[in-house]
Design a protein around this nucleic acid. Structure first.
Length: 282
DNA sequence: CGGAGTGTTAGTCG
DNA sequence: CCGACTAACACTCC
């Protein structure tokens, strides 16, 4: 589930409860889910939680970092005295006893609070890393779409030398970070641009509109706490978001376009499900 | 049983 | 070296 708005939502929630907590114990249940030195983390206090692209970083009192990418199915859940806070991929682990079937790492803090990293498909990871390593990792990413560093001129320069579909260019994190499959579909619909158009074919006016709409949608999704698909879990306080009610095209194949009434199309682009309106998007 | 799923990266080829 | 394309990662649900 996690795209930029979901990760940002998670960051804000974690920042309200994790700073000041000291790691007492770490249990790794799956070797592919953790990299780095556990010893660098034990006894350290979390001072802040930050986000860049879809990556979360936990800053520690010894100037090391705990870094995580949830990929498709990762979740972070903090369980305290009668409280449960977190976010990420919505599934039954949100409500079940933890550690559960998909718990890959468990952090225990000295105040008895627990942090669980659950990840069904084991694409996600957490790692211990120092400042230099963190900088090197983050250097692979273009600026966040919601960062003002992303300008029409910047995007135009990137797009004009690429023949790949604009949707793939929009989702290419080395060009611009934080736009995943859902929000790419939604932004292209809002900007009235067909997803398979070569990136280099966009006019400056179209790029301007795409940038404006991408930002608007991402900020709105953050305001609503992200997108939660599985209806079974949307009522759980503190975990679910509300943007699923705002989706215009994603997941609506065959249903009427909310603007013109014609059926929403679904194709595959770069191996990903792509939804659009053949009439409204040019 | 086959296919699809909210993300990224390694490898290949031109 | 760059861009385009594909497979792979591992698991659950429909």
């Amino acid at each position: 589930m996690p795209e930029l708005p979901e990760v940002e939502t998670l960051k804000r929630r974690l920042n309200e409860i994790l700073p000041g907590k000291t790691i007492a114990r770490i249990q790794i249940f799956h070797p592919k889910s953790f990299f780095g030195q556990v010893d660098e983390l034990i006894g350290q206090t979390i001072t802040a939680v930050n986000r860049r692209a879809k990556i979360l970083t936990f800053q520690l009192s010894n100037h090391q970092f705990l870094m995580t990418h949830l990929k498709m199915t990762g979740q972070l859940i903090v369980v305290g005295q009668g409280t449960r806070v977190g976010g990420g991929h919505p599934n039954a682990d949100w409500v079940q006893d933890l550690p559960g079937k998909h718990t890959r790492i468990q952090y225990s803090f000295i105040d008895q609070t627990q942090l669980f990293f659950n990840d069904q498909r084991i694409f996600g990871w957490m790692r211990q890393i120092d400042q230099l390593g963190l900088d090197q990792e983050l250097a692979k990413y273009g600026p966040d779409m919601i960062n003002s560093l992303v300008t029409v001129d910047y995007l135009a320069a990137q797009f004009k030398r690429r023949s790949m579909p604009i949707k793939q260019a929009l989702m290419d994190s080395s060009i611009v970070a934080g736009v995943g499959n859902i929000y790419a579909c939604e932004a292209l619909f809002a900007a009235q641009i067909l997803p398979f158009r070569p990136a280099k074919s966009l006019t400056n006016q179209e790029i301007t509109e795409l940038l404006t709409q991408s930002r608007r949608i991402l900020f709105k999704a953050i305001d609503l706490g992200g997108t939660t698909f599985d209806g079974k879990y949307v009522d759980i306080d503190g975990l679910a978001g509300g943007f699923q009610n705002e989706l215009q095209v994603y997941g609506r194949a065959g249903q009427p376009c909310l603007v013109c009434g014609r059926p929403i199309q679904k194709i595959k682009l770069g191996g990903r499900g792509t939804y659009y309106c053949a009439h409204c998007q040019k």
